[in-house]
Simulated assay, not measured.
Amino acid sequence: GLRGRLDYTERNLIEKWFHTLKQRIDRFHTSWVGSRPSVQQWLEQFVHYYNHQRPHQSLDNRTPVEEELN
C-alpha cells in the first residue's frame, strides 16, 4: 500500500509466483520453435493453469480462483 509498510506474506507469494514463472519460461525458451502469436497463446494458457487448475500450498491446496471466491 501507500503507507510504506511491506506485507511480507504478499511479497513472498509474489516471489514464489515469479519463481514458478521463471522456471516455466526457462523450460519454454530452451525448447520453443513456434511463432510469436503462439507464445501469446502459451502465456495465456499458463496464466489460466496457474490461477484455475494448479493447487497452491500457501492457499491450503486451493487455486487462486478458489481462494478469491472464499
Rank of each mutant, 00 (worst) to 15 (best):
E10F: 08
E68A: 14
D26S: 14
W17T: 00
L6E: 06
R3Q: 02
H52K: 11
P64K: 10
F28M: 11
T63Y: 09
R11Q: 08
E68C: 13
K22A: 01
N70M: 11
T30C: 13
K16M: 05
L6P: 14
H29W: 04
G4M: 02
Y50M: 13
H52Q: 14
R54S: 03
S58N: 14
Q40E: 13
E10M: 09
K22V: 00
Y8K: 11
P37Q: 01
Q23S: 09
V39F: 09
L13I: 01
F28R: 10
H48V: 07
D60E: 09
E68T: 03
G34L: 14
R11A: 08
F28L: 09
N12M: 01
Y49G: 06
R62T: 04
D26T: 06
T9E: 06
P55D: 01
I25N: 11
I14Y: 08
H29M: 10
Q57L: 10
L43N: 03
R27H: 06
Q45G: 14
V47R: 09
W17V: 00
D60G: 15
Q53K: 14
K22I: 00
H48N: 09
I25L: 15
N12T: 02
H19Q: 07
F18Q: 06
Q53D: 03
L6Q: 11
E66Y: 15
R62S: 11
R3E: 01
V65C: 12
N12V: 00
R54I: 00
S58A: 09
Q41T: 05
P37V: 00
R62K: 15
L59M: 07
R3Y: 02
H52S: 15
G4R: 05
V33A: 13
R62E: 05
Q53H: 09
E67L: 12
F46G: 11
P37E: 07
F18N: 02
E15P: 06
F28T: 05
N61K: 08
W42C: 08
K22S: 05
S31Q: 15
P55I: 00
L21N: 01
G34R: 12
S31L: 09
L43E: 03
I25F: 15
I25R: 08
T63S: 13
Y8T: 06
V65N: 13
Q23R: 05
Y50W: 12
E44D: 11
G34E: 05
P37D: 02
E44C: 13
H29R: 12
R3F: 01
H52Y: 11
P55L: 02
P64C: 15
L43I: 06
R3K: 08
E15D: 06
H19L: 03
E15F: 02
L69Y: 03
Q53R: 05
L21F: 02
V65P: 09
H29G: 13
F28V: 02
N61I: 01
R36W: 10
P37L: 06
P64A: 13
R11D: 07
L59E: 04
R5E: 07
T30K: 12
